[in-house]
């Protein structure tokens, strides 16, 4: 799934859209406008947008919004959604408390 992308900032000014206030990532309350702005700031992949805004880092771990975020990035860059590099999948696949993590390998 890795691909190289032309690293050139989008030329021209960021033009606000009427629906920029729309919340896309419900868990972290990230709006469409913030994601669009992030792309203008040079965030071209899902991982970058995630680290920049925390979109997809909430309770549902991007289960609901990752496709939506992917579509927005694609639209801004003029790509097909499948051409936008998706976030890395790594353990833990579900939210976990630090104290549970700390008990890894500790005998009952």
């Amino acid at each position: 799934m890795t691909m190289k992308m032309e690293r050139k900032l989008i030329q021209g000014d960021f033009i606000p859209r009427a629906d920029d206030e729309l919340i896309v990532c419900r868990c972290e309350e990230i709006t469409q406008g913030e994601i669009r702005k992030a792309v203008y700031d040079g965030m071209f992949t899902m991982n970058e947008v995630k680290r920049y805004l925390r979109a997809g880092m909430g309770l549902c771990q991007g289960q609901t919004c990752s496709r939506l975020v992917q579509n927005i990035i694609a639209r801004e860059l003029g790509l097909a959604p499948g051409e936008v590099e998706i976030s890395t999948s790594r353990s833990p696949a579900r939210p976990i408390q630090m104290k549970q993590m700390a008990k890894d390998g500790v005998k009952k």
Binding site: P92, R94, I96, Q100, M101, K103, D104, V106, K108
Partner: peptide
Amino acid sequence: ISVMLDGRVEH
């Protein structure tokens, strides 16, 4: 695999 189970992580 690692599993979150019963408040801890099991392998």
